[in-house]
Design a protein around this nucleic acid. Structure first.
Lengths: 335, 335
DNA sequence: TTGTACGCGTTATCAT
DNA sequence: ATGATAACGCGTACAA
């Protein structure tokens, strides 16, 4: 039923080889022939069967997105941006949700052993050494977002600067007891975005001569519920913080609820800074750090495209600017 | 480099045909042979090349998701649920973002003419007659979510009942001037979810003997900003509503901000009901209608799977229950 | 039950 | 510049 390259060849009075060349813009086709082929193809509404094409060429024209929490705002935002540019270039993009390390290696084997994809982009996921070896070994183009391998091009945002700006903002307002709602409990410090953010926080504290209180750093799992719980924990320590810096707007929002439920007011009793500039942030008057998610996704996609095109001089690290957006959840400390 | 079916055949001492049968669980393979093949395949870490397989079998093992606003919470939630069950069954799923009618027909032609996909699920998108004809003509398995064709299996939620419950809730509290922040400006009434919701709203009004005021129905484009603007509009009419029912939580949240920015209080001055039970809703204390998005996605995926398996007796309509979740943005009208 | 051989629709190589 | 034709890796009638 579907029209094949042969149909086009017949209709244009040439061979399938010529049709293939003409349609793909390859050289060695006389303009007049090319035009005729193009016209016929258009009339017949022909386009190459992707599966046949992939089989023959070896290129799958597919890229995989490896990421956790597919349902979360952050990931969807980034993934959507990536999809937009990649699909525009004719690539299919598949989202692989990976929650556990076990799942990760499973997905890996499937993807690599069969050359299911031409390239991969890892969002946030830390790649373990073994997987890393497999990837480099497979010669697969890879780009990472908000995570670094030292090998593959990475795109991040200025987490350190952002954390400094956020913390400094709080200090400028007069806060000295500043809590942290960080990410995952077992996150290795000084590695990846959360590490960078904490480093920024600590540096500002040091510069301000504010003593570090480890009990003021509570993980919130990047979730609304986690943020709410973390806030409750922070409020229960003796001499609780007058300001809190949360590593995501979801956690900040959870914190906001806990505060409100306790009858406290923001920012009169306590200040909150989030991270991301979530779509909802403006509507919650949330002071936060804006991350250029769209741009991060586009950048990663563009880098991958370059890798896919065989370029080898792509920047190994691209850091995008963040920006502190001051809204109404931050103010002077009480009294 | 990659191991082929031939490698497995050789190693197992059988023909590729037998390997193919054994691996795919087809009959006419002696258990001992099958076991041997399975074992060898496992050892060699073999799996069939999807592209070759697709070319040969004609099945693409791919399904497409046609939806607008890929970046929005609602769509991502549903899409994620669909992906989970479909990918589990070995299908690749591609998300096609369609914003305009023009784009829609473009995507269509690409998808259908080449049998790019084995099936399609339309989320929210109304299928125009021409496309509908093409689809039925192509014999392509299709399932729709929150939109109905009368031909393909559809899964929806009880929009009418939900709207009745929401409106009734407001009436029970004593409200009589109830505004609506509906969806798109040009949405044909009585068709699709927004129509159903409006119908539910109108029916309750009628039963309560409350006159309909057309100026109290303002579209909000399902966005935060749209909701905020719509609320401003509603507040500017003479004798403004004391309660508002928004057709999405995003719009409700936008409305909340407008109200707050104007120095009014919720629910003392005005009540708000949303729709969706967005992840953020609980944290905004938002009274809303819970829609079982995960279940809707899973249901649609399962239906599609049945169609894909050649079943013909699938229910043409599946309506899932919604539930009014009363939180703190609704209360008695002022005075 | 198992194997042979052809076909799927392209790409790519090598003649012409 | 153009045309045969051999892969590509697998599914599947058909034969054995």
């Amino acid at each position: 039923m579907p029209v094949t390259i042969e149909d086009v060849a017949k209709a244009a009075g040439v061979s399938i080889a010529t049709v293939s060349r003409a349609l793909r813009g390859l050289p060695n086709v006389v303009p007049s022939t090319r035009d005729r082929v193009l016209k016929v193809a258009e009339e017949l509404d022909y386009s190459a069967d992707p599966h046949a094409s992939r089989l023959a060429s070896g290129r799958t024209m597919t890229v995989g997105l490896i990421m956790p929490l597919t349902g979360q705002w952050f990931y969807n935002k980034v993934a959507t941006a990536i999809e937009a540019v990649l699909m525009e270039e004719g690539y299919d993009v598949l989202r692989y949700s990976v929650e556990s390390v076990e799942q990760e290696s499973q997905v890996f084997r499937k993807l690599i052993r069969r050359k299911r994809v031409d390239g991969l982009v890892f969002i946030t996921i830390a790649i373990d050494p073994e997987s890393l070896a497999r990837l480099t070994n497979a010669q697969l183009p890879v780009v990472t977002i908000e995570t670094e391998t030292g090998i593959f091009p990475a795109v991040t945002c200025s987490n350190y600067d952002a954390a400094r700006a956020a913390t400094q903002h709080l200090c400028n307002l007069g806060h000295r007891e500043i809590g942290l709602i960080s990410g995952l409990p077992d996150d290795p410090l000084h590695f990846g975005p959360p590490g960078e953010r904490k480093r920024g926080y600590l540096d500002v504290l040091a510069r301000q001569g504010i003593p570090v209180r480890p009990e003021l750093d509570v993980p919130g799992n990047y979730s609304l519920a986690g943020g709410a719980e973390a806030m409750a924990t922070l409020l229960s320590v003796s001499d609780p913080p007058t300001a809190v810096f949360a590593f995501s707007d979801e956690m900040a929002t959870g914190a906001l609820k806990t505060i409100q439920d306790l009858g406290l007011r923001v920012p009169d009793d306590i200040s909150i800074v989030g991270f991301d500039d979530h779509d909802f942030a403006e509507y919650l008057h949330l002071t936060t750090v804006r991350q250029p998610l769209d741009l991060m996704g586009e950048t990663a996609a563009t880098l991958l495209l370059r890798l896919l095109h065989g370029e080898t001089d792509v920047p190994v690290r691209t850091e995008l600017d963040t920006k502190l957006i001051v809204r109404a959840t931050t103010g002077k400390p009480p009294r």
